[in-house]
């Protein structure tokens, strides 16, 4: 399958196969204006199979790198300018994320208080576990 390279924007490469759609759902994509391609199960020397996401004309400064780190810290983010890779970024597991993970505890105050941000902090790096700062609900990003 051939998908054109992009002129300006971001390519998220080496996403673990199967995590691409999930990553896409966590990224705040503008459905009306962004041009996005997702390639699933592409062949990969490193991983056997991988997913790739290409987003055209997205501003790399406003791009939420934390989300990539959260879903797949082994992915790479390539920032493309004039069809060339300007920078390669390896995301890390963020220490804290705001309004990315939604607390699923029905008794959590975030389910009822208007305008309250969902804030999760890294609880266990090895198991990629995050903890809601309000109710202490644990979310494992491996199981999400």
């Amino acid at each position: 399958m051939v998908i054109d390279s992009i002129k300006n924007g971001i390519v998220i490469d080496h996403i673990q196969a199967g995590r691409g759609m999930k990553l896409l759902s966590y990224l705040s994509i503008d459905n009306e204006n962004d041009t996005v391609a997702i390639i699933m199960n592409a062949s990969s020397k490193k991983r056997g199979k991988k997913d790739i996401i290409k987003i055209e004309n997205v501003d790399s400064n406003s791009f939420n790198m934390d989300v990539v780190g959260l879903i797949d810290p082994d992915a790479t983010v390539n920032i493309i300018e004039n069809e060339e890779i300007k920078a390669k970024v390896r995301p890390t597991l963020p220490a804290r994320v705001e309004n990315v993970i939604k607390c699923k505890n029905p008794r959590c105050v975030t389910s009822s208080e208007r305008g309250l941000k969902n804030i999760f902090v890294l609880n266990d790096e090895e198991n990629r576990e995050y903890r809601c700062v309000y109710c202490d609900e644990i979310v494992s990003m491996d199981k999400e």
């Binding site: 008794r107 105050v109 389910s111 208080e113 305008g115 309250l116 700062v133 309000y134 109710c135």
Partner: peptide, 29 residues
Amino acid sequence: ESIADTIRTVGCFADVIVMRHPKEGAPRV
């Protein structure tokens, strides 16, 4: 009324606030 607004109001009247709430994390808010 939100917890935030209630607290900002009661904080004008009281020196200390004791709160029980059915929602987990409400006192942190």
